[in-house]
């Protein structure tokens, strides 16, 4: 029987262990998501100071008033599902399901009872934000801002 040098065997074990740790670490990658719920209306002309980072984007919409209703940060991992109630009885579901191409793959649904208002998948780069607007609420609409860092 052929003998293998101990140093070669040790290196092979280290290499396999490193590959295993790297591969398994994919699902353990921490993901921080922040969801901001905004009420946009034409009542008044105030823009919440907390929305300064996205104010320029809000300015392209047809509303004059933007109020931050809620900010909810999520510290989660890839593969974990989260549900968040939205004003007006709607529900936001977040499902970070993968990492690829340097971006977080995210599935987002907004439901209003049995109605599925939105069902989308997208890839979000680190530090990027997506705004989902349009669902009617009170005298205006809801805008949901989702940003991620990982």
């Amino acid at each position: 029987m052929r003998r293998t040098a101990p140093s070669i065997r040790a290196l092979a074990v280290l290499l396999v262990a490193q590959l295993a740790v790297t591969g398994l670490g994919w699902s353990q990658t921490p993901v921080n998501l922040t969801v901001q719920v905004i009420h946009a209306s034409n009542t008044g002309t105030t823009v919440d100071p907390a929305l300064a980072k996205i104010r320029s984007q809000l300015g392209s919409m047809k509303y004059s008033s933007y109020k931050l209703l809620e900010t909810r940060p999520f510290s989660t991992t890839v593969g974990a599902k989260h549900a968040m109630p939205l004003p007006g009885g709607k529900t936001l579901d977040l499902y970070p399901y993968g990492l690829s191409g340097g971006g977080l793959e995210l599935m987002v649904t907004i439901t209003d009872g049995a109605k599925r208002l939105l069902d989308t998948t997208f890839r979000l780069a680190n530090g990027a934000t997506i705004l989902v607007g349009g669902p009617a609420y009170a005298d205006g609409v809801l805008i949901v801002a989702i940003s991620g860092s990982f």
Binding site: G101, G102, L118, T120, F122, R123, A125, G127
Partner: peptide
């Protein structure tokens, strides 16, 4: 281990289904 380069378009929509 090295991080993959960030995409040029930082939000890439893959699919949108809506009512």
């Amino acid at each position: 281990v090295q991080p993959a380069p960030s995409p040029v378009n930082m939000v890439e929509i893959e699919r949108v289904d809506a009512e």
